[in-house]
Amino acid sequence: MDLQIALLLGQDGITNGAIYALLALALVLVFAVTRVIFIPQGEFVAYGALTLASLQAGKLPGTLWLLLGLGAAVALVEIALALRTRQMRRIPSILLLNCGIPLLLGGILFAIPPATLPLAVQVVLALMLVVPLGPMVYRLAFQPIAEASVLVLLIVSIAVHVTLIGLGLLFFGAEGSRTPAFTDMSFEIGDALLQGQTVLVVVASAVLIVALYFFFERTIYGKALRATAMNRTGARLMGISATMAGKLSFTLATLIGAFSGVLISPITTIYYDSGFLIGLKGFVGAIVGGLASYPVAAAGAVLVGLLEAYSSFWASAYKEVIVFTMIIPVLLWRSLTTRHVEEEE
């Protein structure tokens, strides 16, 4: 291995690591706030990428039907609840939020052929189609069992993952898609060629991470999420409802997931089931951070990316084995150094 190869591998590892870091942050966020291990995170990566690809191919993305369906289901549940507690004045806003906006989005897609729109608008449309799915999934699958044990939440999480993968196959087919690069620029550094898209991924991830930092440190909603993660009872007493915190964290996680999908879809082919493995690597990063520390999780995820890049050079057939085996020493080390934290308060 010469220096040039080492640099190229490092560049590749950091690019993938940046994506894993984003996903790791989202996983830590969701776990800290809701105690849900968010396995379906990967599906939202694939949904984001494939929805964008569908829009660019001039097809109506299947996620629109999912959005309409879930929106209707959420509206039904909420209206039933409003009727039971006699809060009729909530009904119009429920309908508008869960049915009206998705229908409007669908109408726009029917009226304007999405393939002709500029790329930035397509990206925004794709995110608007995918991101609301997160809070809707939370409302339907997790909110009713918010007080359940971590294990029950994990089982439901796996069920949601399997369901979303199946729907992904139905919506997008078995074959993968790629989207055109956001930029065709490339830079020569020494002998190495640096792709503009690669730089974009790293920069966009860094910007998103900084934005998240500001959200958590400087805004009252961000602080409220952190507060819920630190002390659920304390947060409730401040009027920070677990439901609101859950929905907010799922919205953020889905946004991060879908955005990651949009970022990497020009670099690699994304299939309906690609997200799982990508999410799993983010998960390894999150585990390194003990599902609690954001900076350690992000660093762990970048480490996963680098490990993956270098092991694909040295022993490509065993790459996954190496990456996932990394969990074992990390868990061992953590179980020896950290005291056991009670899961329920």
Partner: peptide, 20 residues
Amino acid sequence: KRELFGEMSVEDNLLLGAFD
């Protein structure tokens, strides 16, 4: 048990008191 947000500053704890 007071239920404070231990890893946040005094100021942030107070701020969250006004969250609602």
